[in-house]
Design a protein around this nucleic acid. Structure first.
Lengths: 135, 135
DNA sequence: TATTGACTTCAAGTATACTTGAAGTATTAA
DNA sequence: TTAATACTTCAAGTATACTTGAAGTCAATA
């Protein structure tokens, strides 16, 4: 079986050692082998970390990620909870994307505007108003 | 001039009183009029809060938002900084969107998978593996 | 054998962004 | 005039997610 040191896992996942230990402390990473005072990780741990990062990067709070894995351990009893958690999270991501897209347009307008301002200042011509550029 | 109480601003912006006071404390909201022991807000404040929320909702940290408004007060000297801040932020938002879109696909697969699991449990048929549903 | 390097634990500290609570003030309604 | 309402200040507390520091362990090389 292929195994990894904490350093290798850290490099592969981009998570610092401290975070890997922290995730283990709070029960997010389970069954990490402790042998001769060293942690040993397997591909299963790497997959789990990938999953954690997917949740984390979509702004699911750690408590909810923990909940998800608790449910997964009792799939039969918790199937409704797990489906609801996932569907709610899917909606959350869709909403996050549309919020970002909406605000992106506004930021792009700002980029336009301040570039025009910059140009005007460089050429010593009057600074445009927001409405000159955007309105 | 149209003015607003803290309550009205809170209702219009969705920000609690405490947050409006906090933003004022840290210098994010400026020139709020204090009259007869009450705060008075104008449409300019509302526009400023809109801007703050645009930045906040796109995950620009408060320190950077403060920086932006400090730059804006010295547009001529800080035009390069402000353009850089905005362009960097634009890129950040584009990256956030694509990260979310990428992870959304994975979450949608999970939704599919757990819905199949749920169905199987309800019909007393064997639970599919991930590869059965997704692979 | 000693020292180096890579790990270990555990408690305490940090960063960000607010929120809460206690005590006070001003305006209005009874 | 008293009581209710709606605000006010300011310090301290909270939530989330880690990070840091000090002191110790283990195996391998000098």
């Amino acid at each position: 079986m292929i195994t990894y040191t904490i350093k290798e896992v850290s490099e592969k996942t981009g998570l610092p050692h401290s975070t890997l230990r922290y995730y283990e402390d709070i029960g997010l990473l389970k069954d990490v082998i402790h042998e001769k005072n060293k942690r040993i990780y397997t591909d299963e741990h790497l997959r789990r970390i990938e999953g954690i990062l997917c949740f984390k990067n979509t702004n699911l709070p750690i408590k909810k990620i923990l909940e998800f894995y608790r449910y997964e351990e009792n799939l039969e009893e918790a199937i409704n909870d797990i489906v609801e958690l996932m569907e709610t999270h899917e909606i959350s991501i869709v909403n996050q994307i549309s919020t970002l897209q909406h605000h992106l347009e506004h930021i792009q307008q700002k980029v336009s505007y301040y570039n025009k301002v910059k140009e005007s200042l460089e050429n010593n011509i009057p600074i445009p108003t927001w409405d000159d550029v955007i309105g």
